[in-house]
Simulated assay, not measured.
Amino acid sequence: MSADINRLEHIIEAIDRIQNYTAVKYADYEKSQEKQDAVISNFIKLGEAAGKLSPELKAVHPEVNWRNAVGMRNVLVHDYVKIDYKELWQTAKNDLPVLKKQIQKILEDISEK
């Protein structure tokens, strides 16, 4: 379980970093290769951590779309020519706040046990 806790904390850290890098206007993000690279790197970290969570933890928390997190990582690593920076931006703005709350809740539940 401690490995899962560590990976969940890495997911939160990656989300926080992505949110920090996207806390600008879209036009500023679009012009900044550094921000885009940083966002990609942290999405990869997020997906890698999600992919290494135990099957038991994932089964207990089907409300989290683990498959999408890992799938995005796979596209970013293996099919990088298809990266859609606007889609990454939208995911950061729309999906990550929800994911962060879900992960925080899981961490709270684990710590209560």
Results as ranks from 00 to 15, higher is better:
84 D>K: 04
79 D>L: 05
60 V>Y: 06
36 Q>G: 08
108 E>A: 01
23 A>K: 12
61 H>C: 14
99 L>C: 03
28 D>K: 09
69 A>M: 15
5 I>G: 08
26 Y>H: 08
17 R>Q: 12
27 A>S: 12
108 E>W: 00
29 Y>C: 04
103 I>V: 15
65 N>F: 08
85 Y>H: 13
74 N>E: 11
62 P>S: 04
53 L>P: 10
65 N>I: 09
31 K>N: 14
42 N>Q: 07
23 A>D: 14
58 K>Y: 01
107 L>T: 00
79 D>C: 01
70 V>F: 08
31 K>F: 03
72 M>H: 06
104 Q>S: 06
62 P>D: 03
70 V>A: 06
6 N>K: 15
86 K>S: 11
112 E>P: 00
2 S>T: 14
100 K>C: 01
11 I>C: 04
39 V>P: 02
107 L>S: 00
2 S>E: 14
28 D>F: 03
104 Q>W: 02
101 K>T: 12
65 N>W: 14
24 V>M: 10
46 L>K: 02
42 N>M: 03
41 S>A: 12
71 G>M: 08
97 P>R: 11
50 A>K: 07
46 L>Q: 04
27 A>W: 05
64 V>E: 13
47 G>M: 07
91 T>C: 08
46 L>T: 05
90 Q>Y: 01
25 K>F: 09
67 R>T: 14
54 S>F: 00
56 E>W: 00
37 D>T: 07
70 V>K: 11
66 W>N: 07
34 E>P: 00
101 K>C: 02
57 L>G: 09
11 I>V: 12
53 L>A: 10
99 L>R: 04
39 V>D: 05
71 G>E: 07
38 A>Y: 00
11 I>E: 07
85 Y>D: 06
3 A>F: 12
12 I>V: 11
24 V>I: 15
48 E>Y: 07
21 Y>P: 04
108 E>H: 00
64 V>A: 11
111 S>F: 07
10 H>M: 09
58 K>D: 01
68 N>G: 10
109 D>R: 02
4 D>W: 06
81 V>W: 13
6 N>C: 13
26 Y>F: 15
98 V>P: 04
55 P>L: 02
86 K>T: 11
106 I>M: 13
103 I>Q: 04
56 E>P: 06
100 K>S: 03
30 E>F: 01
104 Q>N: 08
31 K>M: 11
68 N>F: 15
29 Y>V: 03
54 S>M: 03
108 E>N: 01
51 G>P: 13
71 G>H: 04
79 D>W: 02
4 D>C: 10
3 A>Y: 08
73 R>A: 12
25 K>W: 06
51 G>V: 14
111 S>K: 15
72 M>L: 15
43 F>V: 14
104 Q>G: 03
